[in-house]
Design a binder for these strands. Structure first.
Lengths: 195, 195
DNA sequence: GTCTATAATCAGATAGAC
DNA sequence: GTCTATCTGATTATAGAC
């Protein structure tokens, strides 16, 4: 397969996004220059603009991919079961999925204020859509008496904050295994909403 | 009281810090320029260096003040009571204190990565010191059988994440009063650690 | 204590050669 | 597709006048 020298369109795009994700998560969007991203990939700054319209679009694309990813992964989970079973499934899924993507999680929570209003609205809609998945479980459990939650919206925010917070301290080589963390958190979640 | 024209040392310092806190919280440390801070106060950029050695020190001082403030305010709370009573007290205190200082909370959680290593270590120590206050309550309750927490460190992190998350959505003119939010969260906290 | 002016550097983005 | 070179403007921080 003949190919022009230096032509790597199929791999360079993802490498640019991976480098940007790593650097944005590490130092923050505003603190990272296009030159730094280019250096990380091994190219010159000007060439980045073959793969993104501008820096803002690069950030937006990373956040949109992250949010679409979590929605898609949750949709691919087995359906059905009681509210209690669904809540345990969500808890374990959320922990596992987020621990696998610490940089995407960090970026999507920390850089919202660096999005243009239009881009912000789109990311927010995706986030609310994910929160609604948990809230639907809480509503179902509340209706059939499995849970007792005075306010499902508040409980949703409380549980998501609690679970996502794990990414701030968990390390795979740390004191506790993922299974142990999942079990302990599921125990707290279960009791927090118990009917 | 004679005073030189344009001399406002006693008020300008706090006004600089207040402007920096507002802007850093709104747009992020790296995205805010010294010129913006100066404009917010109504002075020229060069004059800021009368009040801070540099931009990094300005950030560090704001974060240190925020952490020292929460530690001091908690220390000023009435002492004594059962672990259950202390946990309710901590829950309500944490919510109230943090809802009163949304910008300081935001700054202290979001800008850790923009601190120099030395400054980071100092802020982290203060944060751990605050977390230890909650963990001590959980340990006491675990020992006298009031609570059942398989891992007090994990429960500490889980509860703080849950409670601090409130600052991300709560508005004083919103659907729920502070008292209602405190009550609902205390109910979830209580059940999550119940023995 | 605050100003203006400036030094030295770096930013995002584009043009055109290859 | 990537490079070099460059435009335009912003950045932190300092010097010296007042």
């Amino acid at each position: 397969m003949a190919r022009k020298t230096g032509s790597h369109a199929e791999t360079t795009g993802p490498r640019v996004r991976a480098a940007a994700l790593r650097l944005f998560a590490q130092s923050g969007y505003a603190a990272v220059s296009m030159r730094q991203i280019a250096a990380e990939v091994g190219m010159q700054a000007g060439a980045l603009y073959t793969y993104t319209a501008d820096k803002q679009t690069l950030l937006f694309d990373l956040m949109r991919e992250h949010m679409a990813d979590v929605l898609e992964a949750w949709a691919a989970q087995p359906q059905g079961g009681s509210p209690g079973e669904r809540l345990e499934q969500f808890t374990r899924f959320h922990i596992n999925h987020h621990l696998d993507r610490p940089e995407g999680v960090f970026l999507s929570y920390m850089e919202l204020r660096n999005l243009t209003p239009k881009n912000f609205a789109e990311i927010e809609a995706l986030r609310r859509s994910y929160e609604s998945e948990l809230e639907a479980i809480l509503i179902a459990g509340q209706e059939n008496g499995a849970f007792s939650v005075p306010d499902t919206r508040l409980a949703t925010m409380a549980l998501i904050a609690m679970l996502t917070g794990i990414t701030q301290w968990y390390r795979d080589d740390g004191r506790l295994s993922r299974e142990r963390v999942q079990k302990i958190y599921w125990n707290m979640v279960r009791r927090a909403v118990k009917g």
